[in-house]
Amino acid sequence: MAVDIETFGQLLPGQPRRRTLEIKAPATARDLAVQIGLDPSEIGLITIDGVQSDLDDEVPPGSRLCFFPYVSGG
């Protein structure tokens, strides 16, 4: 099953913002972040299917996972 991943802001500069990852075993947001080359300490917000999530939350197959840098409302 696939997970649709999108990165925002200055995360992974120069790389495509959207990608699809095949996952064969349960994976956390942290696992997938590392797999695509992200430093977890640079992540300010994670959403899974639009719901705010944590690095250690499991990512269901078929879901949409977003990684944001630190963002502040203004």
Partner: peptide
């Protein structure tokens, strides 16, 4: 401040 458009949209 437009940096949050994606995040606010994603959070619905």
């Amino acid at each position: 401040t437009a940096s949050i458009v994606g995040a606010v949209n994603e959070m619905g």
